[in-house]
């Protein structure tokens, strides 16, 4: 922010070679009140929208974190300030640590595998071949289907003991796996479904990223004797940098707040083995009616998303300024 203002000021002083000593005064004269007011009017809708849709819920959630708010409070409106009680209780709850670890595993594994498979498919579809557009469109389907529909289908696929997947594995002599009903595989199962949904998103963005790389670079490299992997590492990967950054940040936020998928498939079970912070927060708030603790858990998700987005913005600004 500060840097931009300085640059603006420099630009302003450069454009007016005979600017008076007082630079701020010069800027003022450039922007009459009417113009400033006009600009503010244009800002108004987005400001109202942001306040109403983002600031208010977030502030309310933050406020809840420090209040003894329960069902009775909804009626009486009365709740007390309880300091850090909700946060401390939420963290000390045996369910929290498990949910935090599950969320970390779920997010990292989903992101990495989605990206690798998405990139592989994007490279595969880079070369046009008969039906390539059709197949690519079909691959995007998981992302377009409403999550509830897709996950319900997966419930049937994973069904214990003779869902589609177990029948398929049975042909290869693999005994039935309790996909959603074993604490060993429930988290793995929801990761698989999340990856399945996320691949499409990665494929689309990476594919369009690949299209934007000038073919001349590849031709030049080929003439210079670069092999496929050399071209991949020295041309494709660096050129995909910005797309990758966007993908990982958006993917991170999407994955972190993933809820309906888990809720439809396992509801966090069996025995909390696939509980994520998002579902845990929901359970605390709406099954236990402990709104304060639910809000405290949600705060952790806010903070995690916030850190990643701030980090991303900083990196992007450095790239833009470079």
């Amino acid at each position: 922010m500060k840097r931009e203002t300085l640059m603006d000021v420099e630009a302003a002083s450069r454009s007016r070679t005979r600017a008076p000593g007082n630079l701020v005064g010069a800027r003022r004269r450039q922007l009459p009140t009417r113009v400033v007011a006009g600009r503010l009017v244009f800002l108004l809708p987005v400001t109202v929208f942001l306040l109403l849709m983002f600031a208010y819920p977030m502030a309310f959630n933050f406020w809840l974190t420090f209040q003894s708010y329960d069902l009775a409070s909804l009626v009486t409106g009365a709740s007390e300030f309880v300091g850090l009680d909700n946060i401390v209780t939420a963290i000390n709850d045996p369910g929290f640590a498990g949910a935090a670890v599950n969320t970390a595993v779920f997010t990292v594994v989903s992101l990495v595998v989605q990206f690798v498979i998405g990139l592989g498919l994007a490279l595969f579809f880079y070369n046009r071949f008969p039906l390539s557009t059709t197949i690519r469109a079909l691959l995007v389907l998981p992302w377009l289907v409403p999550s509830i529909v897709a996950t319900t289908a997966w419930r049937f696929i994973f069904q214990d003991p003779n869902g589609f997947l177990n029948q398929l594995l049975g042909h290869f002599g693999v005994p039935p796996v309790h996909w959603l009903t074993s604490s060993d595989t429930a988290l793995l199962s929801i990761i698989i479904v999340n990856i399945w949904i996320g691949i499409a998103f990665n494929l689309v963005l990476l594919h369009s990223g690949l299209q934007s790389i000038p073919t001349e670079r590849y031709e030049a490299a080929q003439i210079d004797g670069a092999g496929y992997w050399q071209r991949f590492w020295y041309i494709t990967v660096p050129a995909l940098g910005p797309v990758t950054a966007v993908l990982l940040v958006l993917g991170f936020v999407y994955t972190l707040k993933q809820f309906d998928l888990v809720w439809t498939l396992t509801q966090g079970g069996p025995g909390n083995s696939s509980q994520l912070l998002s579902t845990w927060s929901y359970t605390l708030s709406f099954n236990n009616n402990n709104f304060g603790q639910g809000a405290a858990v949600a705060d952790f998700l806010f903070v995690a998303s916030g850190i990643v987005i701030v980090f991303y913005t900083l990196v992007q600004r450095r790239q833009n300024n470079a």
């Binding site: 369910g95 604490s183 079970g269 069996p270 025995g271 083995s273 509980q275 359970t283 099954n287």
Partner: peptide
């Protein structure tokens, strides 16, 4: 009394943990 809801949630998770051998 009114503290029933959180018990049913915690208990059903615990029973599942025992049933799957997780705890």
């Amino acid at each position: 009394g009114a503290n029933y809801q959180s018990r049913t949630v915690a208990l059903s998770a615990a029973l599942q943990q025992i049933a799957t051998g997780a705890e």
